[in-house]
């Protein structure tokens, strides 16, 4: 996200992006009430560049830059927000959809080569499998 105020033009392209995310995630993003429950309870929020509720807002406004938001990749699908959203929305599914839009273009978010051998040896299999599933296309 930029530091300066930007002007948004609401065009068909914005709506298409929203509809695409809604289709892939299966969530009705327009239902989001922007109450912020998801953000405040998120255990990762301090690692993020935009809050989860802001992520929902950016998708609603059709802002494709949200695909590059760190938030999308920090979300680890812990479902804390899912069980709390007063509108029964699943923000983790929205984050997953955004990740998938990127990954389906074969852009990986993880470089396997940087992990050192020692770490590899002791790390549980499930950690590696999960990381590769979530972060590679």
């Amino acid at each position: 996200m930029t530091d300066k105020i930007k002007k948004i033009r609401l065009t068909d392209r914005n709506v298409k992006f929203l509809e695409k995310v809604e289709e892939i995630s299966g969530e009705s993003i327009t239902l989001c009430d922007q109450c912020g429950t998801c953000s405040a309870g998120c255990p990762f929020v301090e690692e993020m560049d935009i809050t989860p509720s802001q992520l929902m807002r950016e998708v609603l406004l059709g802002q494709e830059e949200v695909l590059r938001a760190r938030t999308t990749w920090i979300c680890a699908s812990c479902f804390t927000c899912t069980v709390r959203c007063p509108r029964m929305l699943d923000v983790s599914k929205v984050a997953e959809a955004l990740r998938q839009i990127g990954l389906r273009q074969a852009i990986d978010e993880i470089d396997i080569n940087i992990i050192d051998r020692e770490e590899y040896r002791k790390m549980p299999t499930i950690a590696l499998v999960s990381a590769y599933r979530k972060l590679t296309g």
Binding site: P43, A76, S77, I110, D111, I115, L128, A131, K134, L135
Partner: peptide
């Protein structure tokens, strides 16, 4: 959450 698979990278 413990941070899950973020432990890898």
């Amino acid at each position: 959450c413990c941070g899950s698979y973020h432990t890898v990278s």
